[in-house]
Design a protein around this nucleic acid. Structure first.
Lengths: 111, 111
DNA sequence: AGACTTACATAGTCTATCTATATAGACCAC
DNA sequence: GTGGTCTATATAGATAGACTATGTAAGTCT
């Protein structure tokens, strides 16, 4: 059973992106995806078709702001940062995640 | 913020049902739903439109077997039990769940 | 020039749970 | 005895969220 990558569990993508931005301050999309993949030791991989639409929805929601810039490798990239609303949302997402996962854990751990 | 019930996170419904059956041996649909709700202290509630289709898919997959019977309250009900394949699947689901949740936890816990 | 890589973006698909609705029988109250 | 409520199962259709596939563009390397 080849330790294949799993999908991002629906409902956790915003959480992963928000937390990654909170950690690094400012990143562009590609870096966000790479960071998540590395931090999870290849367990989770965010696909481009999930990442970019999510970032745009997050812009609309006001959780992040973006600016166009240039990478170290001299390519154009869009850099994202959390807003105050984004930080607040991150706290909400973490709290919900822990609440729901704790509930499932209680079911799993019953004798 | 009124501690509203959350949805069952996609991908965890089979796990919850399988584990609940493993715990009690034999239950009918209503009892499965009630047990999950109670064990999670009202955090999770399985809706009927999710539960019954899921049970039917699990029958087809061979994870459970069913018999029609009568409840203590003298109503007809369909009682489900795990098969060997169902117990095996439960182990797989738990392992996947822990793998993915552990990965997300690593992201959340970074400084 | 051509191939490869980085980086962003969008349209459409797919999966899984939900909402809404329907059926049927048992029990209770009046 | 019938109307209302509760238990219990079931199905159809809606919805949400991440995916696949595809496309663009620009930089580097040979």
């Amino acid at each position: 059973m080849a330790q294949g990558r799993d999908e991002i569990p629906p409902g956790t993508l915003y959480l992963l992106i928000l937390k990654t931005l909170a950690r690094y301050g400012e990143l562009h999309g590609f870096e966000i995806a790479n960071s998540i993949q590395q931090t999870t030791e290849d367990v989770l991989q965010v696909e481009e078709g999930s990442l970019y639409p999510a970032l745009q929805r997050m812009l609309i929601k006001g959780w992040v702001v973006a600016r166009w810039g240039t990478t170290a490798g001299n390519r154009r990239a869009r850099y994202y940062q959390l807003t105050a609303a984004g930080r607040k949302q991150l706290a909400v997402e973490i709290s919900q995640f822990e609440r729901v996962m704790g509930a499932i854990a209680r079911v799993i751990q019953t004798a």
